[in-house]
């Protein structure tokens, strides 16, 4: 049983590392798009690891499936929203991106 707990702790820690990285990116990166980039990528990966870690604690398969569903949905939502926010940002901050991208 100890092995499962050790695996969980390990995985959750790596997940946390990614979250910290994402947040550091949010605070440190110069412009809007890079911050957005950092956030979506790092946090999503972090969430994946944590979900995996927690999966080890689950007793039945259904719960694991639900966790996977949660992670997949979160990933999908994050990706779509990042796209939309990036596109919206383009219209409002034209000087940063240089080129004229039609929305």
């Amino acid at each position: 049983m100890i092995a499962l707990d050790v695996m969980t702790v390990l995985l959750v820690c790596t997940g946390l590392v990614f979250f910290v990285a994402g947040t550091a990116g949010l605070l440190r990166f110069p412009d809007f798009h890079s911050r957005l980039h950092a956030l979506t990528k790092a946090d999503n990966l972090g969430l994946g690891f944590i979900a995996l870690g927690v999966a080890f604690q689950m007793t039945d398969a259904w719960s694991v499936a639900k966790l996977a569903l949660v992670w997949m949905l979160a990933g999908l939502a994050a990706a779509s929203v990042a796209q939309l926010v990036a596109r919206a940002a383009l219209d409002r901050l034209p000087d940063e991106s240089g080129g004229e991208h039609k929305g």
């Binding site: 949905l73 999908l76 939502a77 779509s80 796209q83 939309l84 596109r87 929305g103």
Partner: peptide, 17 residues
Amino acid sequence: ARSDGVLSMFGRLLPPL
């Protein structure tokens, strides 16, 4: 919203779920 944009794809994907 743009008919072929990300939002419409997202809008088509989620409802059944």
